[in-house]
Amino acid sequence: MRIRPIARDDLDGLQALSQQAGVGFTSLPDNREFLAGKIEAAASAFEERTARDNRLYFFVLEDETDGELAGCCAIEGQVGHEVPFYHYRLGSLAHSSVQLDLHRTIDTLFLSSDHTGDTEVCSLFVRPEYRGEANRHLRNGALLSKARWLFIAEFRDSFPDKVLAEMRGLFDDNNRSPFWDSLGRHFFPMDFDEADRLTGLGQKSFIGELMPKFPIYTTFMPDEARDCIGQVHRHTRPALEMLKKEGLRWEGYIDIFDGGPTVEAYIDDVRAVRNSQCYRVEIDANAVDESVSRWLAATTTMLGFTAAWVGRAPRDENIVLTPAEARRLNVTTGDTLRLLET
């Protein structure tokens, strides 16, 4: 398995991924024209033909045995410059009566664009057959998640100070969002799926146009909806745990539609960015995999960026690869790889 930039001939594979991702995966709608545009935008980003504040770096997880796309992930260079980027910010308002000696603090939701200009890691999806500890394709989600940090570390000057990730919120057994039913549906004359679809297609201006500009008191919401605030979908929990291990934290921002948390960090504080280092490649046909240590390696060119697991730790300033690993990463003796111990 390896990570590589999406290519222009990956459209069929990307659409197949979008069809499996389903409702709630806003950034990957099943719309062929939109997906083709996303691929072209990514190609322009990797070829550095797009301004840095408008780049989309889109990667795919490729199964070398048959060339199938097993998953995807992406990095938005900076959000909110062309299309508004909205959240709710969870806050509080204090009320008091001196005469009656009564005090009350009430949670509120404020419409916010505070993350405008930040980097976003997004669109992480792994096909069901490539997930799970029992599956032979072990740690594919980790490969997708962590490869993005190696890319950011290698091209640090292309990114701003902060990074965020939006997490899918809670849905019930009927694939219904209690948060949406309590709040969003009162302001948008459409169902959740349609609002989700429009957002995925980049048509986000209606959010600012239709949502209330004043604080919303969460006490007016039913308990079922309030319980969704800052909580994640069961399928999103592994991704959230990986991000938390890298140092991203919830700071009170949630998704407009489903109430899922947005986690964030300063890029230079992210564990993988801080700890990854570069090593010189040596190829040895007799190299033996280590039983414990697992290392993630990534190339240092933007257009040819490739990431994959390698079976041994670096020694001094060198990393020894088998011929198969070198072919997977498309490197030769003397090249440079960025490595991260996981």
Rank of each mutant, 00 (worst) to 15 (best):
Pro212Val: 08
Ala239Phe: 03
Glu48Trp: 09
Asp161His: 11
Thr336Phe: 05
Leu69Gly: 05
Asp12Ser: 15
Asp269Val: 04
Phe171Arg: 13
Glu76Val: 13
Gly259Tyr: 06
Val126Leu: 13
Arg185Ile: 10
Tyr279Asp: 01
Met1Cys: 05
Arg338Asp: 09
His115Met: 13
Glu251Phe: 04
Ser92Val: 12
Phe188Asn: 00
Asp181Pro: 01
Ala36Cys: 07
Val232Cys: 15
Lys38Trp: 00
Ser27Ile: 00
Phe85His: 14
Ile39Glu: 07
Gln277Leu: 12
Gly67Leu: 06
Phe187Trp: 14
Asp10Lys: 12
Asn318Gln: 08
Asn318Ala: 12
Thr108Arg: 04
Phe58Pro: 00
Gly37Thr: 02
Arg197Lys: 15
Ser182Leu: 12
Leu100Ile: 01
Val292Lys: 11
Pro160Glu: 05
Thr199Asp: 06
Cys278Ile: 02
Asp30Arg: 03
Met211His: 07
Thr262Asp: 01
Leu337Asp: 05
Thr301Trp: 00
Tyr279Glu: 08
Ile152Cys: 09
Lys204Gln: 00
Gly67Asn: 09
Asp53Lys: 08
Pro160Asp: 07
Leu339Val: 13
Leu93Met: 10
Leu93Tyr: 05
Ala272Trp: 04
Arg55Trp: 00
Ala272Asn: 05
His103Leu: 12
Glu251Val: 04
Asn135Ser: 15
Ile256Pro: 15
Leu109Phe: 00
Arg49Ser: 09
Phe85Gln: 02
Gly169Phe: 14
Val281Trp: 10
Phe110Ile: 10
Gly200Thr: 01
Pro160Ser: 07
Gly304His: 15
Leu124Ile: 15
Ala43Trp: 03
Gly252Arg: 10
Val121Ile: 15
Val310Trp: 10
Leu144Lys: 02
Pro160Gln: 02
Ser92Asp: 04
Leu164Ala: 05
Ala16Pro: 07
Arg280Thr: 15
Glu317Met: 02
Ala45Asp: 08
Ala134Val: 05
Ala36Leu: 12
Gln78Cys: 14
Arg168Pro: 03
Ile39His: 06
Glu47Leu: 14
Ser158Phe: 12
Thr332Leu: 03
Met211Leu: 14
Tyr88Gly: 06
Thr105Leu: 08
Tyr253Cys: 04
Arg104Asp: 11
Val163Tyr: 10
Cys278Gln: 11
Glu133His: 08
Thr262Glu: 11
Ser97Met: 03
Arg226Asn: 14
Pro5His: 02
Ile6His: 01
Val270Ile: 15
Ala16Arg: 15
Ala265Phe: 07
Asp181Ala: 05
Cys73Tyr: 01
His87Ala: 14
Asp114Pro: 01
Asp191Ala: 09
Phe85Tyr: 14
Arg249Met: 08
Glu290Ala: 11
Thr300Met: 12
Ser293Tyr: 02
Phe155Ile: 10
Asn54Leu: 13
Arg327Ser: 14
Thr300Gln: 06
Val232Glu: 13
Arg271Val: 06
His186Val: 02
His115Asn: 04
Arg176Leu: 09
Phe34Ile: 06
Ser113Glu: 13
Val270Cys: 15
Glu209Asp: 15
Ile319His: 07
Ala287Cys: 11
Tyr57Asn: 02
Glu120Asn: 02
Gln15Thr: 06
Glu325Cys: 07
Pro323Arg: 03
Asn330Ile: 00
Arg139Cys: 13
